[in-house]
Design a protein around this nucleic acid. Structure first.
Length: 422
RNA sequence: GUGAUCGUAGCUCAAAGGCAGAGCACCGCACUGUGGCUGCGGUGGUUGGGGGUUCGAGUCCCCUCGGUCACCCCA
């Protein structure tokens, strides 16, 4: 029966039947992140709105149209985090985490919020996991971070992944390139769609995202950033590619790859899944060497990536391994027996057994069928007869065998059964 | 934000303007304290919500909420 309320648009409940899949995902990726030397960081789900505006960029869609922003009762301008890098960098500065560390490494997991039109693999509240590494500009670190992303995804069961990589330059070389690109577009404006012409003004590199066939054709001969990188960026990029090759990571250089966040410099990458529709980027990241300084810290290079958890779960088989049932299901007949069953359940739980007590007050037949449906290994039956004799009936739900035991011998008996079963 | 499409029982779906249905699930009985299998019976709905057209609307029209797909954007 549908009640009055529904989950807000673009949000989803993760129900007990789904959560084992999520748990398995988090276990898999967190193990990888720890093996790569990252410790978990949890930052607030909301921050000062200006933190995101400054970090992600004033001109980006995320900041302009997609932020959940509000004013709190103290008059503070607050926003729900649309991504995690800004929060991690803020915490890095606030606690001076770079002081005793040549390289600060942290991973995170948690919900992010963007006000967008929902679609498969795109929600208003969605989960991300990811890592940030602050303190080194070494291109080998770029390769390690990318490798870490790929390893975590394959640990999560993803196949058919493709790594797209590019260098988006730096404040020294990028402006020169965008001027050249803008010039190219405006030489033949008739060949481009209106949105591309608009992009030519604001952020020329975005034209490469256009799916319009006419624009794509017109861009065939467009100047690419690869030829316009400064020496430092070009060297860095080729060193990243070389390092990837050494560790055996296949990369597809894509000079048209663009990122939607302003803070990226040099390396930018995207990992796509062949198992998804339009929203096929399952992870993305890059270097942000200017961000710490932009937040008022001493210049510190950084790099990281984010993984979209719902997208990974969409792309992996929905292998529905059901949640494990209780070890013991306690069926009781009558109020007195219910109490005795509760006491027995408490004792068994303390010794490590998962125990479910039946509160339905239904027939024994019904309670056994509930035990069956719950996937219980054993059912403990307590009724008048058992209370009289002091011997409780314990039934093996697989074999159908049952035994009568006094309550004290239940735990040792179940323990020995468990060992035999394993 | 733009466009398209869908919304009927807990779930999956029928009903081509004329009695709201099926399968599964659920409950009960056969079987009064012993699950799975079988048979029989039963509960369950303001057809997402609101308005309109019509003798009559699940069906047509408008508004609204939500889902899906694409765009936009992105994880």
């Amino acid at each position: 029966m549908m009640g009055e309320f529904k989950a807000p648009k673009g949000t989803k409940d993760i129900l007990p039947d789904d959560s084992p899949r999520w748990d398995r995902f988090f276990n898999a990726v967190e193990t990888v992140y720890k093996n790569y030397g990252y410790g978990r960081i949890d930052t607030p789900i909301f921050e000062a709105e200006s933190l995101f505006a400054r970090g992600i960029g004033d001109g980006t869609d995320i900041v302009n149209k997609e932020m959940y922003a509000f004013t709190d009762k103290g008059g503070r301008k607050i926003a729900l985090r649309p991504e995690e890098t800004a929060g991690v960098v803020r915490a890095f500065l606030e606690h001076d985490l770079g002081r005793n560390n040549p390289l600060f490494k942290a991973y995170y997991k948690g919900p992010m919020f963007r006000y967008e039109r929902p679609q498969g693999g795109r929600q208003r509240q969605f989960w991300q996991v990811g890592v940030e590494a602050l303190g080194s500009a070494d291109p080998a670190l770029d390769a390690e971070v990318i490798d870490c992303a790929l390893e975590s995804l394959s640990a999560a069961g993803l196949e058919d992944l493709k790594l797209h990589i590019n260098s988006v330059g730096c404040p020294i070389c990028r402006p020169g390139y965008t001027t050249v690109l803008r010039g190219y577009i405006l030489t033949e404006p008739d060949r481009f769609c209106p949105t591309c012409l608009e992009r030519a003004e604001k952020n020329p590199m975005r034209v490469f995202d256009c799916k319009n066939p006419g624009c794509a054709a017109a861009l065939q001969a467009a100047p690419l950033i690869t030829a316009h990188l400064c020496a430092a960026c070009a060297d860095h990029f080729s060193a990243v590619l070389a390092a990837l090759q050494v560790i055996g990571v296949a990369a597809e250089p894509d000079p048209r790859l663009v990122r939607g966040l302003d803070y990226y410099t040099k390396t930018a990458f995207e990992i796509k899944s062949g198992a998804l529709g339009a929203q096929d980027a399952v992870a993305a990241g890059g270097r942000y060497d200017g961000l710490v300084e932009q937040f008022g810290g001493v210049s510190t290079p950084g790099i990281g990536f984010a993984v979209g958890v719902e997208r990974v779960l969409l792309a992996t088989e929905a292998a529905g391994r059901p949640a494990a049932g209780p070890d013991v299901y306690v069926a009781t007949l009558g109020a007195e027996a219910r109490q005795a069953g509760l006491a027995a359940a408490k004792g068994l739980r303390r010794t490590g057994f998962a125990v479910a007590v039946d509160f339905s007050d239904k027939s024994l037949k019904k309670q056994l069928s509930y035990a069956d449906k719950a996937g219980a290994g054993f059912t403990l039956i307590v009724g008048d007869e058992e209370l009289q004799t002091g011997a409780y009936v314990i039934k093996n739900m697989r074999t159908g065998e049952q035994a009568a035991l006094d309550p004290e011998s239940l735990e040792p008996w179940l323990t020995s059964q468990k060992q035999e079963g394993a």
